[in-house]
Design a protein around this nucleic acid. Sequence first.
RNA 1: GUGGCCUUAGCUCAACCGGCAGAGCAGCGGACUGUGGAUCCGCAGGUUACGGGUUCGACCCCCGUAGGCCACCCCA
Length: 428
Amino acid sequence: MPSYRAPRGTRDLLPEARAGLSRLEAIARSLAARYGYREMEIPLFEQTAVFERGIGEATDVVEKELFRLAPRTEDSEAWALRPEATAGLVRAFVQHGMHTLPQPVKLTVVGPMFRYDRPQAGRYRQFWQWDAEVLGDQGPAVDAELIELGWRFYNEAGVSGVQVLLNSIGDAACRPAYLESLTEYFRANAPVLPELERRRLETNPLRLLDSKDPSMVALIAAAPKISECLCADCAAHFSAVKAHLDALGVPYRVAPMLVRGLDYYTRTAFEYYRSGAEGQQQALGGGGRYDGLVELLGGRATPGIGFALGLDRVLLALEESGVEAVREAPPLAVVTGADPADTVTRLRVASLLRGEGLAVRVELAPRKLSRQLETASKEHAHFAVIIGDELAEGNVQLKDLEAGTQRLVPLSDLARELARAAKSHHHG
RNA sequence: GUGGCCUUAGCUCAACCGGCAGAGCAGCGGACUGUGGAUCCGCAGGUUACGGGUUCGACCCCCGUAGGCCACCCCA
């Protein structure tokens, strides 16, 4: 047994898995470009305060899942690994005065996030997200545009049966009153509440609606609904979002009990779920509107909306639904030689071909030719270049490993021949 | 953070009631000195996750720890 292993909740993405992730990243980048988003990078860690203020101190993400870094010195500021991208992205928006850019500003980030919670399949301490944010447009058309973007991502990635859950959780005008009536309702029923729920009543009453406790079902069903308490503006916003989604043909289901775990959300809230995986309480992605967040992080009042899609969970969903894993591109050719010891010539020929932009492997272990060809076959190389005595006349053998044919080719023509073959066989 | 199930070679798994830790695949080599995925033969690979206990004797029973999975909590 190895004495060292990847830390709990992390894993090595072996080449095959990395290829799957790369494919998703490529789809995300392609979509982002098509929808007018500009990709950027933000640090993997921020001042802890960015998350505490931005996400909310009472949220689980900050309270128990924040991956805090040990301070280097006593007076250094506190840092934490990013548990999501939105807070850092908004911090950057404010820091760089992006409110002076033409509005709205559409930004995207792809990369790893970190949460210190207990690992499970599809839940890791380091996981990958695609994040897209629109700042400076109060919607509702951009809400629908963004939701459609996520929807399209799952379609292009090949995940079947994804459903959009949609809700509005109100804004500063109507949410306080709703919260009050909700709190009042549950407080009246406090004696029958389980311990955990009683605690949530004080910290974040909205999340009582999210409870999976069986004893809560009837109580939740009878609880006041946010949709009945929305102010006129929020109600109009919500129905306009739905109208735009209808026009785009994006199927969705209104989920009155859908609330989000982060404090900054207002109005539109949505999650992407895979039907057939309702048992697992694992969203494929989610997002919402956060009209107060920019101001909260020190900027001028700017509306915003965004989503985060969990790429690991998409990979898992694809695997579970039996979608073939992506195959890495095989090498076009492997350079082999009759003289096992002559690594100099093999390496020079390989270098020549690589200089011409061709993807070739070269056999450098001093093994006999049959072994070299065996390896080439196992790697699914299309061609083998065989170097032998004919090199004295400036020729090499070019063997087509798929067809089983071979012919003599002048070394000076080799790159051109391979390039032409690559083109006609759609090789990389 | 709480509870349940699990952990034997790189991978998938055997090992009777507590009695010498084994196979397939993958790797390396040979059969085969300039021609490939097959076949046959061989080699290597283990502190049975780790630490303790019970026992003449522990992969097997007991305790602890770590890791994985599942259900909560919560989210991606």
